[in-house]
Design a binder for these strands. Structure first.
Length: 220
DNA sequence: GCCCAGGTGGGTA
DNA sequence: TACCCACATGGG
């Protein structure tokens, strides 16, 4: 039996409290972070962002003007620095050329259209695109990630072969289109995933454990 | 030393 | 479609 999405959310929020992801930062800083954090811990990304801030480069045109090799060195602590420098520059080129370097202008674009545009940038996949839309643009698009998939499939609430878009649709059709809710929900799923999903014995003390099917977590 | 982290794109069958 | 792989630094 599938619990209501609100019930899962309530349990996580009661257990952990608000996660306050990406608080007090500029939308551009969030956008940069969304690329740098790909398959990487936030701690590493923070060092890279600090380098960019130190160099006064947290602005689209300024950062795009930085030579590729220099950008690589600045973001090196975030890992995959050559790939990410390329991806970041692709995104900056898009923002500068399509929106004249204005994120404010960019986020005026209708959500679905902008999402498609972001996905067409090489190196921007669904999670990065949705993170930018939600956390930088405050637009109501749900961010799915490996933890969302892991938590929901192991509880039997999603098929093991569910796609990104399957899960995204599941959340968006089952919840009010509220950016603040999507923001917190995603952050809480990452939190519970980090804290419990790869520990053994699994699910000990997990706030979602009471919702597990009999026999414990499912495996593919 | 080993495993993993808030993914994405390319290659092969 | 379904896998498999490269990409890289830093923390537990």
């Amino acid at each position: 039996m599938k619990p209501h999405l609100e019930d899962v959310y309530r349990r996580l929020l009661e257990a952990y409290g608000p996660q306050n992801w990406w608080p007090g930062q500029s939308p551009f800083e969030v956008l940069v972070g969304a690329v740098l954090v790909q398959n990487t811990s936030w701690k590493n990304v923070h060092k890279a962002i600090a380098n960019l801030r130190e160099a006064d480069l947290l602005e689209p045109r300024a950062l795009f003007a930085v030579p590729a090799e220099e950008l690589e060195e600045l973001i090196r602590p975030a890992g995959y620095y050559r790939v990410k420098a390329r991806r970041l520059r692709n995104l900056l080129e898009f923002v500068v050329q399509r929106y004249n370097g204005s994120l404010e202008a960019m986020f005026q674009t209708p959500l679905h259209q902008l999402r498609q545009e972001l996905l067409s940038v090489h190196g921007i996949g669904p999670e990065t695109a949705d993170s930018i839309l939600l956390y930088a643009g405050n637009l109501p698009t749900f961010v799915v990630d490996t933890y969302t998939y892991r938590v929901f499939s192991r509880h039997g609430w999603a098929a093991f072969d569910a796609t990104y878009d399957d899960l995204k649709e599941e959340f968006e059709s089952g919840l009010p289109a509220d950016p603040a809710l999507y923001n917190e929900y995603h952050a809480l799923l990452v939190r519970v995933g980090n804290q419990h999903c790869r520990k053994t014995p699994r699910c000990q003390g997990c706030p979602l454990a009471p919702l597990l099917p009999r026999g414990g977590p499912l495996e593919p």
